[in-house]
Structure formats: C-alpha cells, structure tokens
Amino acid sequence: MSRFAIRPATAADLPALAQIYQKARAFMAATGNPRQWGTTNPPWETLEQDIARGQLFVLCAGGTPHAAFALVPGADPTYAVIEGDWKSDAPYAAIHRLASDGTRRGVFAAVLAFAAARQPHLRIDTHADNHVMQTLIARAGFGYCGIIRLADGSPRLAYERLPANI
C-alpha cells in the first residue's frame, strides 16, 4: 500500500502546486537540468487545463500535497512523430509534468503504480539533461524508444513500458 493518497487536483490546490513546481525547478537546476522547465514551466494555464480535464493528480501525505503529475490518456500529439520506434501502437497513457517538493521518497513508484493500474501501457519523456528522471524511468522498466519533439521543437528522450499482454 502506498504511503500517499493520490487524488485529482482541484483549483484549491493551485497554491500548493505552484510551490511544488517551484521546488522541482530548483532541484532540476541544482542537478544539472536548468533548461527543461526553466523558471516558469509548466505554465499556470496548463495546470488549470489539466485540472479541468481531470488529468492532474496530487500525491498527499497527511492531507498535504507533496507531488503532482498529469496522467494523459489516449494518443498524445507530441508522440505522433518519433525519431526512433515505439514498441507498440496499442492504446496508452502518458505521464507528464511529474514534480515533487522533495520532502518525500517513493513519489515515482507511487505515480507509476497509480498510472499502471489505470493504463498498463505507459509512455513518458524527459530532457536529455534530466539524469535523475532517466535513472528512475530505466529502473521502472521503461525502454528507450527515441526522440520526440515538443510543439516548440525541443527534443525529449521518449520511453515506453508495455504490459505483459502486448
């Protein structure tokens, strides 16, 4: 059983989300990845849209949010073109905007368990400078598939984890 309660984020969580993402950006910069999110990503509007769509979640301990992530079901336009090969074209969900305030361990494992329970075929991407996330992704059984490009053309390393039945 996870030590976290995971629930859909609400507009009331936006102040806590702002703090979580600020701390995550600072951690990323301190670990050699200052460019992935810079000082302003993800944009406030993106978080509001994720909340409205019911795809942004918070991980809480003792009722306090300590991490957040988007679980986006269905075909992701960012993943439509890859410099490489996806392992499967079966339906999947993508994990995006994963961030932690750094005060709790086990966040990635909890997110992965939550996501896989809803859609076992998962995709995720990260910046080439995000070595911390690359290590977590590899340890979780994701395979590297190639490079995808964000809407602005920025490259990201793309990974996929298949369920046993595909």
Results as ranks from 00 to 15, higher is better:
residue 75 A to I: 12
residue 74 G to C: 11
residue 135 T to G: 11
residue 97 R to Q: 03
residue 118 R to G: 15
residue 74 G to M: 11
residue 97 R to D: 02
residue 74 G to I: 13
residue 75 A to T: 14
residue 94 A to Q: 05
residue 109 A to M: 08
residue 22 Q to S: 12
residue 27 F to L: 14
residue 74 G to V: 09
residue 129 D to R: 04
residue 139 R to F: 00
residue 110 A to K: 09
residue 149 R to H: 13
residue 106 G to Q: 11
residue 60 C to G: 03
residue 22 Q to C: 04
residue 133 M to W: 00
residue 25 R to N: 01
residue 121 H to Q: 14
residue 39 T to E: 15
residue 98 L to K: 00
residue 59 L to W: 05
residue 28 M to P: 03
residue 108 F to G: 07
residue 155 P to L: 07
residue 122 L to V: 07
residue 148 I to P: 02
residue 135 T to W: 01
residue 16 A to V: 06
residue 63 G to W: 11
residue 71 L to V: 09
residue 29 A to M: 03
residue 2 S to C: 04
residue 54 G to W: 05
residue 29 A to D: 06
residue 165 N to R: 10
residue 143 G to P: 00
residue 49 Q to E: 13
residue 144 Y to W: 13
residue 37 W to I: 13
residue 73 P to N: 10
residue 99 A to Q: 05
residue 131 H to D: 03
residue 103 T to S: 15
residue 91 P to I: 09
residue 121 H to F: 05
residue 7 R to E: 11
residue 97 R to C: 06
residue 55 Q to E: 14
residue 166 I to S: 08
residue 48 E to R: 15
residue 30 A to N: 06
residue 41 N to A: 15
residue 9 A to N: 07
residue 98 L to W: 00
residue 147 I to A: 00
residue 60 C to D: 08
residue 154 S to K: 02
residue 40 T to G: 10
residue 90 A to I: 03
residue 49 Q to A: 14
residue 106 G to D: 09
residue 17 L to M: 07
